[in-house]
Design a binder for these strands. Structure first.
Length: 588
RNA sequence: GCCUGGGUAGCUCAACCGGCAGAGCAACCCCCUUGUAAGGGGUAGGUUGUGGGUUCAAGUCCCACCCUAGGCUCCA
């Protein structure tokens, strides 16, 4: 059977992992205990335990790589042997990890195969491998990290080396360039360079301080989302950041998610906690007055700030934080309204995401695994109905690529997750639409139906941007900080060439201000070159240059970010261009 | 939370085996009046993450804690 390109790459990389282990064992004989190492999407990794306090750091990489290249020169054959259990046990007698793997193979009644490269290296391995080590010329070790044996927190922490390998030098170089490009786009770095946000140690980890430029960006995004929701039949609500523990006990969060909540605090003998979710507060608003079937659907939306006690090791810039604001909404509806509400939420999702410049989506439907009873609440009938409705809405919206994750549902109901691809192809999960059977029952939500009987409504949770913090982090990386004009914190910079033009420049500024544009006047006593460079580094979309020639004609020179072409025009023409481009939103 | 790095001026980073803490950018002042991605000169800026310890002497060695990077686990 012919192998696909991905399969071939995986074989190459897995072989490279053997090469890495062989080099390690040659460099530190008796001090490395191999665990395992597979190929991954972009490379491979090798897990091992180090003995006698040996520590491997990236400073060792050149040495290890040199040793690997030596083995490549030797062109050792990858030789496969099938052996019996007894021999396998003996061969790896000193290695508890290999013994455990042998247990598994024996249990599965599979043949035990080993691969030799040269006389000094053998590993338990299913293969396949490339023919000889001479084929592994283009590799690079990337990082070192800790990883639990078999991925379980209860097990020992091993050392892991990540690396990658390609058939040609060109492909390796391209990959390394892409990695560097991702680093250049890192929102933490750009956040500093563009003065968007900071995280202050004294304020606390995972807590974002928005600087003026980041704050205006956040406001534009928030306003756009809220306006869209209000236009689409949602109602705005506001709820506090803290609530009594009683509320979280009733909602179930106290029992299920206490460890992710900030510890409660006392006031007047009552315990309060920061809210980890907005839902129970929206439920309280719903429950305040008795509702008729005619009132439904009700769609409460809020830019709700929540606080979750994320473990310190998982915090990351804007994308994983402890305090964040969700573009949250809860739709409370009758059973006969569910399908339309879900469809509507989906349509809105795609509209919003497309406006922000994301055009490639993946949709995942997470359902219940009926075998895992106890993991999910609610009755079979509700689950079947909910899953059916979600599926129907997805079909109706002609979703391009649909995955199903059986058993991936929340304990309270099935959900739809939307993942986007950013400009350099990375995937991020953003939107979520979830059905909830839990809260309506726990809070005894009711409405009165046509026959005068109290009935329990259905509830849909949905957040389309997810968290504003995370969304902005992703947006920064998607655009590499060069936001389209409608989002750019500063849209226009005015550059008078000398002090003589400051007067005319100010007049232009007034007109930009009246046109509601965000601008800066760059009038420092620096050379034009210097100021142009600053404007480019700040990734400002429009640069307006004003010198004597322009003043005479009552015009100015327009230049665009990252583009040396320019034209001379009047303020009127400029405003017409800008307004048109801003109205297009996602473009540029 | 766990593993391995790291924390030095506002930012990015240097300082050998323990021996006077240093540079670029930014800031401020002065000169230049600028025509398309860094003009020139000067000034100021530090309890080296925090607390303890070893030493004649600690940015450097030891202990604890905080923060941070890459991962692992987690992510309702």
């Amino acid at each position: 059977m012919k192998k696909t390109k991905t399969e071939k790459l995986a074989i190459l990389r897995h072989s490279c992992e053997h090469l890495l282990m062989q080099a390690m064992l040659r460099l530190w004989p008796g001090k490395i205990l191999m665990a395992l190492g597979p190929a991954t999407k972009n490379g491979f990794y090798a897990d091992f335990e180090t003995l006698d306090n040996l520590k491997i750091t990236p400073t060792d990489f050149p040495k290890i790589e040199a040793e690997m290249h030596k083995i490549v020169q030797e062109k050792l054959l990858f030789k496969k042997y099938i052996i019996n259990t007894k021999r396998a046990r003996k061969l790896f007698a000193n290695n508890p990890y290999k013994q455990e793997l042998i247990d598994d193979i024996v249990h599965k009644k599979e043949p035990i195969s080993i691969y030799y490269t040269g006389r000094d290296f053998v590993d338990l391995c299913r293969g396949p491998h490339v023919q000889n080590t001479g084929q592994l010329k283009h590799f690079k070790l990337l990082s070192v990290a800790g990883a639990y044996w078999r991925g379980s927190e209860k097990n020992k922490m091993l050392t892991r080396i990540y690396g990658t390998c390609f058939p040609t030098k060109k492909e390796l170089d391209t990959y390394l360039k892409q990695r560097a490009e991702a680093q250049k786009r890192d929102h933490r770095r750009l956040g500093e360079e563009l003065d968007l946000f900071i995280i202050d140690e004294t304020v606390g980890p995972g807590l974002i301080l928005w600087q003026p430029k980041g704050a205006i960006l956040r406001k534009i995004i928030m306003d756009f989302a809220l306006d869209t929701y209000l236009k689409n039949g949602y109602q705005l609500v506001f709820t506090p950041h803290i609530a009594r523990i009683k509320l979280w006990q009733q909602s179930g969060h106290w029992d299920f998610y206490r460890e992710s909540m900030f510890a409660p605090f006392k006031a007047e003998n009552q315990l309060y906690s920061l809210k980890p979710m907005n839902c129970p507060l929206h439920v309280k608003i719903y429950n305040h007055k008795i509702k008729s079937y005619r009132d439904l659907p009700l769609r409460y939306t809020e830019m709700g700030t929540v606080y979750r006690f994320e473990k310190s090791g998982v915090l990351h810039g804007l994308t994983r934080v402890r305090g964040f604001t969700q573009d949250d909404a809860h739709i409370i509806c009758r059973r006969d309204q569910l399908e339309e509400e879900i469809s509507h939420a989906l349509e809105l999702t795609f509209y919003i995401l497309k406006t922000f410049g994301f055009n490639k989506f993946k949709v995942k439907l997470s359902t219940r695994d009926p075998k895992e009873k106890g993991k999910f609440i609610g009755n079979d009938e509700d689950w079947q109905l909910a899953e059916k409705l979600l599926l129907q809405s997805l079909k109706k919206n002609k979703i391009p690529s649909l995955e199903e994750d059986r058993g991936g549902a929340a304990f309270y109901g099935p959900k739809i997750d939307v993942t986007i691809n950013d400009a350099i192809g990375r995937e991020w999960q953003l939107s979520t639409i979830q059905l909830d059977f839990n809260l309506p029952s726990r809070f005894q939500m009711r409405y009165i139906d046509q026959k005068g009987q109290a009935r329990q409504p259905f509830m849909i949770h949905r957040a389309l941007l997810g968290s504003l913090e995370r969304f902005i982090g992703i947006l920064i990386e998607h655009y590499a900080g060069a936001f389209p004009p409608w989002l750019a914190p500063v849209q226009v910079v005015i550059l008078p060439i000398t002090e003589k033009e400051i007067g005319p420049a100010k007049k232009i500024a007034d007109q930009l201000s009246q046109a509601n544009l965000r601008y800066e006047l760059s009038s420092s006593n620096q050379t034009l070159s210097y100021r142009l460079r600053q404007a480019e580094l700040q990734k400002i979309p429009y640069l307006l240059i004003v010198g004597q020639r322009e003043v005479k004609e009552n015009k100015m020179v327009l230049r665009r970010r990252g583009n040396k072409e320019q034209r001379t025009l009047t303020i009127k023409d400029f405003l017409a261009i800008v307004n048109k481009e801003i109205a297009k939103k996602k473009l540029l």
